[in-house]
């Protein structure tokens, strides 16, 4: 199948990821007291209810909106020259260096281990109503898939079309799309785990859990 040890080693070789925090929309930026080299944390708490470190505030139409760090990491750059100016949507504000967490590593490896069902076209995807009900009620792993099953609604240019599943039978092990965002053609929508591979996948999970050390 694939070599998990090698994969892990590869990731260990470059365990960082640069995160660029951008302006979510237009507005006047005020930076919080963050310096280059400072450590920031992402959302925490049982339900991620505690926000991450405050990086900046952006004000638009007299509405101040805080911009928090979404992951923990180290501040590499703060674009201070933007302080107090009106910025366009998507303007980079802060750059962070983020050390991959266990879950992220797991996600990377699972993407290789699972059978991926990819988006045939760039579109927004939704689960078909009955699948959606199941996913919401008892989580994606409660959905068992089989060839030809109505799985998605593909919404593109205001038109909607059904999309049937094709691939091995199994359960939805991972969901890779957000309901309101476009998915490019060829990007995975879900990761499917056939029942006979369930134990293998669980092994992978266990390995990552034990072998990957989280760093600040």
């Amino acid at each position: 199948m694939f070599d998990i040890t090698q994969l892990l080693d590869e990731i260990k070789a470059s365990p960082y990821e640069e995160i660029v925090v951008t302006a979510p929309h237009t507005g006047v930026v005020t930076f919080a007291d963050v310096r280059e080299g400072a450590r920031v944390i992402g959302p925490s708490g049982t339900w991620k209810e505690k926000k991450g470190t405050l990086l900046a505030t952006i004000e638009r139409e007299r509405n101040q909106k805080p911009i928090h760090a979404v992951e923990k990491g180290e501040v590499k750059e703060v674009l201070r020259h933007l302080e107090g100016t009106f910025v366009e949507a998507g303007t980079p504000l802060v750059r962070l260096r983020h050390f991959l967490s266990r879950d992220e590593v797991l996600a990377i490896i699972l993407k290789k281990a699972l059978h991926l069902f990819v988006a045939p076209e760039r579109a927004k995807y939704y689960f078909a109503p009955d699948v959606d009900k199941k996913v919401k009620a008892s989580g994606p792993r409660s959905v068992s898939l089989h060839e030809g099953m109505d799985l998605f609604i593909m919404s593109r240019m205001k038109r909607e079309a059904g999309l049937a599943y094709s691939g091995p039978s199994g359960v939805i092990y991972a969901v890779y799309f957000q309901h309101n965002e476009n998915v490019d053609a060829g990007q995975p929508l879900i990761g499917v785990c056939p029942p006979d591979q369930l134990s293998l996948i669980e092994d992978v999970v266990a390995r990552v859990q034990t072998e990957w050390e989280e760093r600040e």
Partner: peptide
């Protein structure tokens, strides 16, 4: 010319208009 997050967000348009 100004880049905005969405054509559907009236707040963006107002902010750009003011700016």
């Amino acid at each position: 010319l100004c880049r905005v997050s969405s054509y559907h967000d009236a707040n963006e348009l107002m902010a750009v208009a003011d700016d």
